[in-house]
């Protein structure tokens, strides 16, 4: 809760992430060309890659402020499981940086000529997938806390871990468009989300303990 109040006092950060997302997505047609058919096929992949980059962009901020003002030390000393606190922070991060992307995605999908059903599917996959991005990203953010060039390092550590989410997320939209049904993809993404929910806060907590030392 505290993180949310804080985020509200930094409202511009949220907008930066969202606009970054929009710009990256808008760059693709400019690079590839305006053919409608091609863009339609690419849409899911492009939106997903942009979502990956956008959620990563805000990652470095996840623990950095707390680290610098000493709050993180105090959080480590609280008589509550650290992984729960981490989970809370990740949830706040997702509400600030993930949820706006989910809400924006139909608009961007329209730009690429996606229609009703596909738009819904795109939103659904992002809704399941972006929390995973926040959860996995927290591990990377915790590991690189306070390091020189931490931002670049985070992307190196975290992007390979994002690959399964990207594959199933974009895959679900494509499969749906080809009329093959996306239940398989969606349930696998759900499984990944559950796994990440269980393991990632624990791993991030361990990483924080290492980094604060």
């Amino acid at each position: 809760m505290r993180d949310l109040t804080l985020a509200m006092r930094h409202r511009s950060d949220v907008l930066t992430t969202v606009f970054f997302f929009i710009i990256v997505v808008s760059l693709f047609p400019l690079g590839v060309g305006p053919e409608a058919q091609l863009l339609k096929e690419m849409a899911a992949g492009v939106v997903w890659v942009a979502a990956l980059l956008a959620s990563m962009l805000s990652l470095t901020r996840l623990f950095a402020d707390d680290y610098h003002d000493g709050t993180l030390e105090q959080l480590l000393l609280v008589p509550q499981p650290l992984s729960l606190i981490v989970l809370g922070k990740v949830l706040a991060h997702w509400i600030i940086s993930g949820l706006p992307l989910v809400l924006m995605s139909p608009l961007l999908g329209l730009q690429f000529g996606l229609e009703g059903d596909a738009l819904l599917m795109l939103m659904l996959t992002l809704l399941i997938g972006t929390p995973v991005l926040s959860l996995l990203g927290a591990i990377g953010a915790a590991l690189t806390l306070g390091l020189r060039g931490g931002g670049v390092l985070v992307s190196l550590l975290v992007l390979p871990l994002y690959i399964p989410v990207l594959i199933f997320g974009a895959g679900a939209v494509t499969a749906n468009a080809m009329g093959m049904g996306a239940e398989g993809h969606l349930s696998l993404m759900g499984a990944i989300l559950l796994l990440a929910l269980v393991l990632a806060p624990w791993a991030s907590a361990a990483a924080l303990r290492i980094s604060v030392e």
Partner: peptide, 13 residues
């Protein structure tokens, strides 16, 4: 109760 060099205060609050 540990109080270190950093106060652990949130400047915005």
């Amino acid at each position: 109760l540990y109080l270190g060099h950093h106060y652990g205060l949130k400047l915005e609050l």
